[in-house]
Computed example of a mutant assay.
Amino acid sequence: MSYQPPRPARGLLVTPEDKEAPARIRRLRRLGLGEHPDPALDAFVHHLAGVTGTPYAMVNFIGEERQFFAGLRTLGAAPVVKADGSRPELGRFLPRDHGFCPHVLARRKALVLDDVCDYPRFAGNPVVDEYGIRSYLGAPLIDSTGMVLGTVCVADVEPRPWGKTGLETIKSTAADLAVRLERREHDGLPL
C-alpha cells in the first residue's frame, strides 16, 4: 500500500487555471495595458467607487503569475491591524491566487459575494485576512473578439447586499469600459 497525499477539498480555495493568459497578455500589450497605471482608469474607478459607495474599486488585468490594477481606488487603509500596529495598503500588484478576480476571469461572468465569509471557497482567500475584504462585486471585461481582458470590480470591508442593481451596475460598467478600451485602440479616443 502506498501513501497518497490528501487531495484538496472539492470547491475550496483553488485559483482557477487560466489557459488564455499568454494570448491575453499579448492583447493587453497591443492595447498598451496591463503594465503601467493608467490615469484614465484611475479616474474611471474613482467614479465607480462613488457610484457604488465602496472603499475599493479596480480595473484588474491578470497575468500568469500576478494581477495588476491599472485602475485603482482605495479609500484609506484596510481595517486589519498587524501585530506591529501597521495596516496593509492595497498596491497595484497582487499574486494571482489573491482575491476573486481570477474566478471572474475563468467564469466569464459576474461574481457577486454579499459576504465572502458565507462561501467556504472564498472565505479563506488571503484578501479577507490581509485587507479585511468582506464583500465583492466583479464583472469580466470582454472585448469584441470574445477575449476576457480583465475585470472591473468593487469591494467593501463590510458585508453588503449588492442586489440586482449592483449586479446590473457592474456588468454595464464592464461592458462600457470594454467598448471604450477598443475605441481608444482604434480611434485614439480618450476613455
Rank of each mutant, 00 (worst) to 15 (best):
V116W: 14
F93S: 15
C153V: 06
P120W: 03
V112T: 14
F100W: 04
A77P: 15
L111I: 09
A155S: 13
G85A: 08
V179Q: 08
S144V: 02
A178K: 10
G150Q: 07
V179R: 14
G166A: 00
G138H: 08
P120E: 05
R108A: 10
C101N: 06
L149R: 09
L181P: 03
R121M: 09
M147H: 01
G76L: 03
S144R: 13
L113N: 09
S172P: 00
S172Q: 11
P88E: 08
A70K: 13
E182T: 05
L72T: 08
P161T: 12
L72K: 11
K109P: 00
E158Y: 12
E65M: 02
Y119A: 07
C153S: 15
S135P: 10
F69A: 09
G91I: 09
R73I: 00
L94R: 04
G138D: 11
R134K: 14
I170E: 12
E64M: 12
T74R: 15
Y136A: 02
P102C: 02
R121N: 00
L137W: 06
R87S: 08
L181R: 04
S172V: 03
R180S: 10
S144Q: 09
G150E: 07
V179A: 06
L177A: 01
P126F: 01
G132S: 13
G85S: 04
I142K: 02
V80W: 13
G124F: 00
H103K: 01
H103V: 01
A175S: 11
G146E: 02
D115V: 02
L105N: 11
K164G: 12
S144D: 05
A77M: 10
L137N: 11
T151R: 14
Y119Q: 12
A139G: 04
L181I: 09
F122S: 02
G76Q: 05
A83T: 12
G132F: 11
R121G: 08
F68S: 04
I170C: 02
Y119K: 06
G166W: 05
V80T: 15
A155N: 00
T151S: 15
V112D: 10
A178P: 10
E89A: 15
F68I: 02
G146H: 07
G85V: 10
R73Y: 15
D84N: 15
G146L: 00
D114C: 00
S172Y: 01
G71D: 12
Y119G: 00
P126D: 01
V152P: 07
L177E: 01
P79T: 08
P120V: 01
T74E: 10
F122I: 01
V157N: 14
E168T: 04
F93H: 15
S144T: 13
A83D: 15
E182N: 03
C101Y: 06
Y119F: 15
A77F: 12
G99W: 07
G150H: 06
E168N: 07
P95G: 05
N125T: 06
R73W: 09
K82C: 09
R108I: 00
A70R: 11
Y119T: 13
G150R: 02
R134Y: 14
Y131S: 04
R180F: 01
E64C: 02
V116K: 12
R73A: 09
G124M: 01
E158T: 14
E64D: 14
R121T: 01
L111K: 04
P88H: 05
S86A: 12
V112F: 04
